[in-house]
Nucleic acid binder design. Structure first.
Lengths: 200, 200
DNA sequence: GCGAAGTTAGAACGACTGTTAAAAATTAGA
DNA sequence: TCTAATTTTTAACAGTCGTTCTAACTTCGC
């Protein structure tokens, strides 16, 4: 009957530090480096304590994914409804941390069913958001929806970010910088074109 | 002095079956599912025997990567010098097996230094090949190299394939099919345009 | 201060990992 | 057929993994 006592202040902060440490580990050493002991050690706690907050490692991964997904969804929404949607969106997906994490999650989902369904959920939601926003603004950029449907533009922008990040991770190549620079110019030109033809 | 006796016939075939099994495992369950015992079991041999052929697991990964890389390089060369370079190239990178493996290798390289340098090598070589070929044919498609430099086109094509594959893996979404279809149309239109302006 | 709830540490489990050592089986070349 | 090189198996090592159990410690609400 008595309502459960609320968690202590230290707890909620510890949980967020756990999520931070997990992200950090995934980015620096890959998702396979994530284990109850390795993550716990990063914030000076013991493995069983981690399991007190996250019963299974899958729970931990899902929590990290959910937190990041909410942030990504919010930022994507904001970018796509900003004055320069394309530019803001490109800057967002160009963040190597965000895109790097996505790569890790996609790979991790490959052999973790629990994560797989969750990744799928997030991916669909994100795609839905993008398609909806793009459908109403692509015309303003002078892009024929017949030739460049929202699905293509969405995949291209996201994929280009993948390629640039993967290239950067693979070695010291200058190609990705050229590609990123060229993409930035292309986006700028499109934004320019859009500005000169206000509401058709 | 006496030259070392040559390997038995069964050996070379066993090695190739080991590489096949490793690829299969990487694609179906992710690179993290690869272990001396799991791979060995797939072709009914024991783990120590695997280590007889590949002293360390890194050696195994590198061998798989090298074999695949040679194939990819050859196919890319062929595609880019075919009658319809862009279409052939797009079809090549659209192969989910190839692109799926790349994703796994990029993720695996994250915490396997030996693999990291090898992946970097392959990536650079592949990129060099693409840039060289694209530099001489992009003009034929009516693409201004100022707006669409080879580096951008290369990253976009490769990245688009990533996005489509990742989407497909994440769940049953129709967006990737729309994107792939739109890309195929775009490529077809470009090939068309090119055909109508032979050698400028 | 008391009792209960929330939090933490220690020890241990069974399963799996990469890898090695040693010995046995198989095969090639003389 | 003999011998030496090649291939294969068995057993075992030290380490890590996820997770659970237990008992202790800390804090909250009264």
């Amino acid at each position: 009957m008595a309502e459960p006592r609320r968690r202590r202040a230290a707890t909620v902060e510890k949980v967020s530090r756990l999520l931070d440490a997990t992200e950090e580990l995934m980015l620096s050493e890959g998702y396979a480096a994530v284990s109850s002991r390795s993550v716990a050690a990063r914030i000076d706690i013991t493995a069983p304590l981690l399991h007190y907050y996250f019963p299974t490692i899958d729970d931990l991964f899902v929590a990290v994914l959910r937190r990041r997904a909410e942030q990504m969804l919010a930022r994507t929404r904001a970018a796509l409804s900003s004055p320069q949607p394309l530019r803001a969106w490109w800057e967002l997906v160009s963040d190597p941390r965000g895109t790097g994490l996505i790569v890790e999650f996609v790979a991790a989902a490959n052999h973790r069913p629990a994560l797989r369904t969750e990744v799928g959920l997030v991916a669909r939601e994100l795609r839905r958001l993008q398609m909806e926003a793009l459908a109403s603004i692509l015309g303003e950029y002078g892009l024929d929806p017949e030739d460049f449907p929202p699905a293509l533009v969405a995949a291209a922008v996201q994929g280009l970010a993948f390629a640039v990040v993967a290239d950067r991770a693979a070695g010291h190549d200058t190609a990705h910088e050229q590609a990123a620079a060229a993409m930035a110019r292309l986006v700028a030109r499109l934004e320019d074109r859009r500005e000169r033809r206000p509401a058709e």
